[in-house]
Design a protein around this nucleic acid. Structure first.
Length: 281
DNA sequence: AGTATCTCCTGCGTGC
DNA sequence: TGCACGCAGGAGATAC
């Protein structure tokens, strides 16, 4: 269930093995992801070089550069990868046989292969020649949650007159990217804010608190993921997600760690929502 | 424009 | 053991 910390952990895990490498070939074993993987892509990237991998929200951006002899040259375009909800990447030896749901291989000249596994095929592997910021899946996205652009003032301004529940509001990628269900539940608990409270009813002061908790929760999760980076090479591609302690997510019916009240579990916009009726108002 | 609902897909846990 | 079912989840698409 890749949320932003898992995607960032993936980026950090694969980057040292992939960046500046020459692409031997791209193998599309099953291109039926959320959108069809462009059939022309293997031809476009063959024998090109890979640039520095970045992340925007939960999208991984893999630049492809023209090759000049053994070196890389000008930017040709970007591969835009999303792990959906069940996707993961791993680095394997180029001879390693694909397992079930191993849909795409990026085979590199260093005899390593970046491999995408995605059982539910909600992920994406797209191509764009325009600056990635202008791609239709990227251009409308809100600020990065860990950046200075995301602060209490910003959230409060955006939330004015909005009636949507605060939980759904912070999960809206147009408002801020990277806050998935787990971390939305956790940060609201830490902020003592009821998930159903209308976004426009959250005071400026409480917006400040909420933003700080979102940042802290995400940063801690990234830190936890960083401890298992070594598992990327020759591993199963699944870093130690959810190592951090979860206060409410997955704990419906169990006692609140603060007040012992049984945690309430409801559905909000078809998402499991867990909170403490006592602590969150 | 803002909000609510639907949708893609497979694997897993549960209850019969 | 097998089957039907509900649920999980990101986020774009669609409807109101």
């Amino acid at each position: 269930m890749p949320e932003l910390p898992e995607v960032e952990t993936t980026r950090r895990g694969i980057a040292p093995h992939v960046e500046h490498q020459k692409i031997k070939q791209l193998v599309i074993r099953d291109g039926r992801l959320r959108w069809p993987v462009p059939a022309v892509l293997p031809g476009l990237v063959k024998n090109k070089h890979i640039g520095e991998i970045s992340r925007r929200g939960k999208y991984l951006l893999i630049p492809v550069l023209e090759s000049k002899g053994k070196n890389q040259g000008e930017l040709i375009g970007n591969m835009l990868v999303h792990l959906g909800m069940s996707g993961s990447m791993s680095l394997v030896g180029s001879q390693e046989k694909p397992k079930k749901h191993d849909h795409i291989d990026l085979v590199m000249a260093n005899n390593k292969t970046l491999r995408l596994n995605d059982p539910r095929r909600f992920g994406a592997w797209l191509w764009t020649t325009e600056p990635y910021e202008e791609h239709e899946l990227i251009s409308h996205l809100g600020p990065e949650p860990l950046s200075d652009d995301f602060d209490g003032e910003y959230l409060w301004q955006k939330a004015r007159k909005r009636k949507a529940p605060i939980k759904q509001f912070i999960m809206d990628s147009k408002i801020v990217v990277g806050v998935g269900n787990i971390y939305a539940n956790e940060s609201l608990f830490l902020s003592s804010i009821h998930p159903k409270l209308a976004a426009g009813k959250v005071s400026k002061a409480r917006c400040e608190v909420l933003v700080q908790h979102i940042k802290t929760v995400l940063a801690k999760a990234i830190e936890a993921g960083g401890t298992t980076l070594k598992d990327f090479v020759g591993g199963d591609g699944k870093p130690g997600y959810f190592q951090q302690q979860l206060f409410v997510y997955g704990r419906g019916g169990e006692p609140c760690v603060t007040c012992d009240e049984f945690l309430k579990e409801i559905r909000l916009g078809q998402r499991t929502t867990v909170f403490c009726r006592q602590c969150q108002k």
